[in-house]
């Protein structure tokens, strides 16, 4: 189960499924749909899904909280989170959002935002941010958290030009948390590590194929999006797929593709500990079981 609605953010899994990479690996995989109201890690705990995706920060929090999950592959290598404001609001740097209304996701996706505010010692009026960017468009918030590959482009395609927007990248302000990874329960991994690693490998193969065949991939993604009523369009998914390629192989670096470095893991864990979101840092080797 992916952690969000059907879109190019999960193109690799859709392609792996569609091209039969899972089947080739001897796996019989059913693609569930995620989205608002669905909690991947909760579904994992409840054994409603065998594998799921999720943010590294969220997964560390879950592991620290006792959910025995393991990372099989780290897909997004850096933070794609942004704070977007209208240039007219005068917001240019993190300190400018002090006391402003800022739209953040709550729940599973709040850790980087909390660390961001703590790190820059900011007090803001947090407005919950749900599935749309309407809070931003209607002016209900001064700034809004957005994923570069998704909401930022949505805002652009609501008629805002990049030069009318002020963008604060989390990655540039010391909150560079890697995001999507593939997870399963520790129990599952211990019972059949080969199958788990095969799933991770097939998923990575799916991603590779997706990056190499963007047109075919967009077609597959659009089919899934239509089935799931995502209400999107080709332009948006194309942007997202290109962004995913950039996020998963930063600067064309294939070596980190699918891997979680201990350094990244430590950095995120320590940041979470710093803001008291966790007390103990879970052991890296127990947490990351993917390819090294």
């Amino acid at each position: 189960m992916p952690q969000w609605i059907s879109q190019a953010q999960f193109a690799g899994y859709m392609v792996a499924q569609e091209k039969g990479f899972y089947r080739e690996a001897g796996l019989d995989v059913t693609h569930l749909t995620g989205g608002p109201g669905k909690n991947c890690f909760a579904s994992l705990a409840a054994e409603e899904t065998t594998f799921c995706t999720g943010w590294l920060s969220t997964a560390i929090l879950q592991r620290a909280a006792g959910l025995r999950l393991v990372n099989l592959a780290q897909m997004i290598q850096r933070s794609s989170l942004l704070l977007v404001a209208k240039k007219s609001s005068g917001i240019r740097e993190p300190k400018d959002i002090e006391n402003k209304r800022v739209g953040f996701w709550v729940g599973d996706f709040d850790a980087p935002g909390l660390f961001f505010l703590k790190k820059h010692n900011l007090r803001v009026q947090v407005i919950p941010n749900y599935t749309t960017v309407t809070v931003f468009l209607t002016g209900a918030v001064d700034a809004v958290a957005a994923m570069w590959y998704n909401e930022y482009h949505t805002i652009l395609n609501c008629g805002f030009n990049p030069d009318e927007l002020s963008v604060l990248k989390f990655a540039d302000t010391g909150v560079n948390f890697p995001e999507d990874g593939v997870y399963c329960s520790e129990e599952m991994f211990e019972s059949d590590p080969a199958a788990c690693l095969a799933f991770a490998e097939a998923s990575l193969k799916g991603w590779k194929h997706a990056f190499d065949h963007p047109d075919e991939t967009i077609e597959i993604v659009m089919r899934h999006a239509r089935d799931a009523n995502t209400g999107t369009n080709v332009a948006h998914q194309r942007w997202m797929l290109a962004a995913m390629k950039d996020l998963m192989t930063p600067d064309g670096n294939d070596e980190v593709f699918g891997r979680l470095s201990e350094e990244d893991y430590r950095r995120v864990s320590e940041a979470l500990k710093e803001v008291n979101l966790i007390r103990e840092i879970p052991e890296y080797t127990k947490f990351y079981r993917g390819p090294r």
Partner: peptide, 11 residues
Amino acid sequence: MSESIFSIAEE
């Protein structure tokens, strides 16, 4: 409801 004038412009 699936395309916007901006998505068509981009595509």
